[in-house]
């Protein structure tokens, strides 16, 4: 298992990682969708970790998110709303940004293990576990710590984003399953 993690990456792996980091940047350009019933805007960018993990698998998916964050850190305004630079990593949502790497890894790991029988429902559950449960479990405590507010305040402040995130998990699941049929890239494990 350890050996597998340090397997040398092929040029194709690097190109795929860079491509999904670029896709993440383009998702940030899409104008946020405002749904009348939900108070907060839905941005397309958080689709990125779900797509990267579910299409590239754990390792390449997580690395593409890390690469995207490196580009944000070196001063490119690639986060939705044109934000970027080192400041965002000191801001209250820093935990969610680092959480994207873990979310992509978890979704990729689950995808690899459910690959042979992967359908829309399994893909949706994978995205919910990695892209919502795990992401919030990292982002919310970090928000509480950075802002110095109690955990439950941070939790209720993040709750309005949940409906949008479930919609994104559904969209990502349909894309992942369609890609599995037409362009499979994940190696089944377990």
């Amino acid at each position: 298992m350890m050996r597998k993690v340090f397997d040398p990456m092929t040029t194709r792996d690097i190109v795929l990682i860079a491509l999904f980091a670029a896709l993440m940047a383009v998702l940030g350009i899409f104008p946020p969708l405002t749904v009348p019933l939900i108070a907060v805007p839905i941005t397309a960018q958080s689709l990125g970790p779900m797509l990267a993990g579910g299409i590239l698998g754990a390792k390449r998916g997580a690395l593409s998110m890390a690469l995207f964050l490196v580009l944000v850190a070196v001063g490119l305004p690639l986060l939705s709303g044109g934000r970027g630079g080192l400041g965002v990593f000191a801001g209250p949502t820093a935990g969610f940004l680092f959480g994207w790497i873990v979310a992509a890894a978890v979704i990729g790991w689950l995808t690899e293990r459910s690959w042979r029988s992967l359908g829309p429902v399994t893909a949706f559950l994978n995205c919910v576990i990695g892209g919502i449960v795990v992401l919030y479990a990292i982002g919310i405590p970090a928000l509480a710590f950075i802002a110095g507010i109690p955990l439950w305040t941070a939790l209720s402040g993040s709750a309005p984003f949940l409906p949008g995130d479930f919609v994104k998990a559904a969209v990502a699941a349909l894309v992942i399953v369609a890609l599995k049929r037409s362009y499979p890239l994940v190696e089944a494990r377990g």
Partner: peptide
């Protein structure tokens, strides 16, 4: 990887 991403955007 960094330079490829900049060209891919």
């Amino acid at each position: 990887a960094i330079s490829l991403t900049l060209r891919f955007i």
